[in-house]
């Protein structure tokens, strides 16, 4: 579609997108304890990118995303599926959650877990799906 010829929208989009992406990461990572999670975070990021599509155009957005949304969708599904496998290696049922507390210098104790990997997979799937749809539609318009 034709980019909306609005300076305000462009400026807003340019500033809002990094903020929204950062916010989406925040929502994703804290989602296990506070409201949030992969679905919501993915939707927030997708809304940010969509805004960018409206302000500029599909091609610019695609460059900005550094990955084809369909590829991102595939990675997300793969990641989510793989997160169920470590449990099998340990002789437990598929998708049994596993937790590894890791000491990271400067930050302190961080807990890595398969549910977190799974949630990141969900995050990528949601962004990839929504953006695949929005970009495809917008590109037809252009």
């Amino acid at each position: 579609m034709k980019a909306m010829d609005s300076l305000i929208l462009r400026t807003a989009a340019r500033f809002l997108l990094p903020l929204l992406l950062l916010f989406s990461l925040f929502v994703l990572l804290r989602g296990h304890d506070e409201p949030g999670g992969g679905f919501i975070a993915g939707l927030v990021a997708a809304v940010g990118f969509s805004l960018y599509v409206f302000a500029f155009n599909a091609g610019d957005t695609r460059e900005l995303m550094w990955m084809d949304p369909r590829v991102m969708l595939g990675w997300g599904l793969l990641l989510a599926t793989l997160s169920g496998l470590p449990a099998i290696l340990e002789g437990k049922a598929f998708f049994t959650a596993l937790w590894w507390p890791v000491e990271v210098p400067l930050i302190g104790s961080v807990t890595l877990s398969t549910p977190l990997v799974f949630d990141i997979g969900v995050y990528l799937v949601v962004i990839g799906s929504v953006m695949a749809i929005v970009l495809a539609l917008a590109e037809v318009e252009e």
């Binding site: 989602g31 296990h32 304890d33 506070e34 959650a97």
Partner: peptide, 19 residues
């Protein structure tokens, strides 16, 4: 290990469903 129960259900207890 999660305090948002909805999210724990989605990514842990019912992860296969969510998949």
């Amino acid at each position: 290990h999660g305090r948002n129960i909805v999210n724990v259900i989605l990514v842990d207890f019912r992860a296969l469903d969510t998949l």
